[in-house]
């Protein structure tokens, strides 16, 4: 029983992590048709900010957590300002390739200026432990992560439904031109979307780093790849689809991890992707995606 509960909370936390990342990708994509390949680098940069802050002026590991999130937000906004603004109205492939380039630049800049080897990141010791919950021992990180995901998604829903900016974002996903005709500044909406996506990535980064305990230049790739797959599975551009896709992917992964015999466990990611691929053959536009019709936003 304890094992089942542990695996369930594990699945929720992994799924939550993917959902946070996938939501960040989806919110940017829905507004400006950009697949942010460099989303994973927000995690990496957040991690390095923690590393440098710990090495220089921050003694208390708890203070490192907001630094990580803040760095991710600022980095996301800088990416938009510097790299993505020139390709704003370009086709999706152009944006994707630009972001791919940005991701390579950041990875290699970190290789050049910091190091290839992983650097340790201190996290508060209470995050590493387990807590007993209704008689079961569960890892604190996973419970926090599940909780944080729920809070973040709730906050996102409030932002999207209760604020002007959120309304503008949702409208921009349908038709940006009309939004701009209503007197809303395009730059503000897009910058807002990047800030939100950076915040979600930073939040996920905190938990990813708490698990790994170290940061290296290439660490952002695997999580963001999973987030991509979650987005495609849910239907690209749909926020609900991204969250659902992330959750399904996380659950699938944990189930396979728990049931696969050890000699094929290394193939887990390949099996997950193949299953997702099979699902997409059945529904090419994703679980919650819609078919493009003539005249739709392209």
């Amino acid at each position: 029983m304890e094992y089942v509960i542990q695996q369930a909370i594990n699945a929720l936390s992994v799924g939550g992590e993917y959902a946070l990342l996938a939501l960040g990708l989806a919110i940017v994509f829905s507004i400006m048709n950009l697949v942010n390949f460099a989303h994973g680098e927000l995690i990496t940069l957040g991690g390095y900010a923690m590393f440098f802050a710990a090495a220089t002026f921050v003694g208390n590991p708890v203070l490192l957590l907001p630094i990580c999130v803040l760095t991710a937000v600022v980095a996301a906004m800088l990416f938009e300002r510097i790299a993505f603004r020139p390709v704003r109205n370009a086709p999706a492939t152009t944006g994707l390739l630009t972001a791919f380039g940005v991701s390579i630049v950041i990875q290699n800049a970190l290789v050049i200026f910091v190091a290839t080897r992983p650097k340790p990141v201190p996290v508060p010791s209470w995050m590493q432990g387990t807590m007993s919950f209704g008689g079961f021992n569960l890892p604190v990180v996973q419970i926090l992560e599940t909780g944080a995901t729920v809070c973040a998604v709730a906050g996102l829903v409030l932002l999207l439904t209760r604020t002007n900016l959120g309304l503008a974002m949702r409208a921009a996903a349908k038709d940006f031109t009309v939004v701009r005709l209503m007197g809303i500044q395009a730059n503000r909406v897009i910058l807002g979307a990047f800030a939100v996506s950076g915040f979600l990535a930073g939040l996920a980064a905190v938990f990813i780093l708490a698990r790994r305990g170290a940061v290296d230049p290439l660490m952002g790739f695997t999580p963001v790849l999973k987030a991509f797959v979650a987005c495609v599975l849910g239907g690209f551009g749909s926020l609900l689809g991204a969250a659902a896709g992330g959750l399904v992917l996380g659950i699938l992964e944990v189930v396979l991890q728990a049931t696969l015999p050890s000699d094929v466990a290394g193939f887990r990611d390949a099996i997950v992707f193949l299953l997702v691929g099979a699902a997409l053959i059945w529904r090419p536009t994703g679980l919650l995606g819609t078919r493009a019709e003539l005249g739709d936003k392209e």
Binding site: T93, L225, F228, C231, V232, L280, P284
Partner: peptide
């Protein structure tokens, strides 16, 4: 798959 979905499919 079309567009972005296909591109991420190739990555996978």
């Amino acid at each position: 798959l079309k567009g972005v979905g296909a591109e991420i499919g190739t990555l996978a």
